[in-house]
Computed example of a mutant assay.
Amino acid sequence: MTRHKATLIGFIAVLLWALLALFTVGTAPTPPLLLNTICFSIGGTLGLIWTARTGGFARLKQVSWKVYAFGTVGLFGYHALYFSALRLAPAAEAGLIAYLWPLLIVLLSGLLPGETLRNGHLLGALCGFAGAALIIGGGGGGFDMAALPGYLLALACALTWSGYSVISRRLGTAPTATVAVFCVATAILSGAMHLMFEQTVWPQGTGGWLSAIALGLGPVGLAFYVWDVGVKRGDIQLLGTASYAAPLLSTLVLVGVGVAEPTWMLAAATVLITGGAIIAARASLKG
């Protein structure tokens, strides 16, 4: 597989994550850890079926337990921190801090062997972050320092996913099928925590269940498999910067279905994110 093709495959995850907000709204009022359990059960089951059909279980037996522990901590840790942050801090501000992970991926990837961090990557990442800030921040009244614990958890969330993505590059020999094991383990951990800390409220009606299933099939399922291919074999710096398209595309979807209103911020963010992606792409092409 070529580096270009792997990068395009990885970008599929960004497109799928653009649907995360829409489907999550559709699953209300199901609590986050129970929703996590449902979605990762679906994603993990699909991964195991695919692994069985491709004869990948033999390779899974050869993978070190440390790799499985790493992947499980990455997926479970990110979502546990994210949901906790949004409980302890305003959603817009906490979400903005959590969405530092694309910028952190671009910066941290420069430390990887064979990768070079160029000025274009930095400028593109900063432009993309500015666009994401406009969308997620939504022109709110600023940070509430009383919610500092939530902000710190959101920062830990960003560090967890960026670290997971960059370190995954060093685990390039581990087959993508290992993600199925990560998902199953995450579902088990989420289920255990749900029983300890949450009240069980299942998705409501056909719409609620369809939204939950869609999450498990896409943003919290297939997305992790294609992202694994992208960060291990593709241009991780370009992927990190392109990830800023996720909040933009998510907003466009919400506007399209009438959940959000179009504003001048959306237009400004479009220019910043698109421009940032172009700058980063040109920097990568020069390599």
Rank of each mutant, 00 (worst) to 15 (best):
M193E: 08
M193L: 15
M193D: 03
M193T: 10
H194I: 05
H194A: 12
L195G: 11
L195A: 12
L195N: 05
M196V: 14
M196W: 12
F197A: 12
F197N: 11
F197H: 12
Q199A: 13
T200D: 10
T200F: 12
V201K: 12
P203E: 03
P203M: 04
P203L: 04
P203H: 03
Q204R: 11
T206P: 09
T206L: 15
T206V: 14
G207N: 07
G207H: 07
G207Y: 04
G208W: 13
G208R: 14
G208C: 14
W209Y: 04
W209T: 04
L210C: 13
L210M: 15
L210I: 13
S211W: 03
S211D: 08
S211C: 12
S211G: 08
A212M: 09
I213Y: 12
I213M: 12
I213R: 10
A214G: 12
A214R: 07
G216V: 04
G216Q: 07
L217Y: 15
L217F: 15
L217K: 15
G218M: 06
G218Y: 04
G218L: 12
V220T: 14
V220M: 15
G221L: 08
G221K: 10
L222S: 09
L222H: 08
A223N: 09
A223W: 04
A223F: 04
F224Q: 14
F224C: 13
F224A: 14
Y225N: 07
Y225M: 11
V226H: 13
V226E: 13
W227K: 02
W227M: 05
D228I: 05
V229Y: 03
V229W: 01
V229L: 06
G230A: 12
V231F: 01
V231Y: 00
K232Q: 07
R233H: 15
R233D: 12
R233F: 13
G234S: 12
D235G: 01
D235C: 02
I236C: 14
I236E: 13
Q237E: 09
Q237I: 04
Q237G: 11
Q237H: 03
L238Q: 03
L238I: 04
L238M: 04
L239C: 04
L239M: 10
G240R: 00
A242M: 06
A242S: 07
S243V: 03
S243L: 03
S243K: 00
Y244F: 07
Y244R: 00
A245S: 13
A246W: 00
A246E: 00
A246H: 00
P247S: 08
P247R: 03
P247W: 01
P247A: 06
P247V: 03
P247K: 02
L248F: 03
L248W: 02
L248V: 02
L249E: 06
L249V: 07
L249P: 06
L249I: 10
S250K: 00
S250N: 03
T251Q: 03
V253K: 00
V253H: 00
V253S: 00
V253E: 02
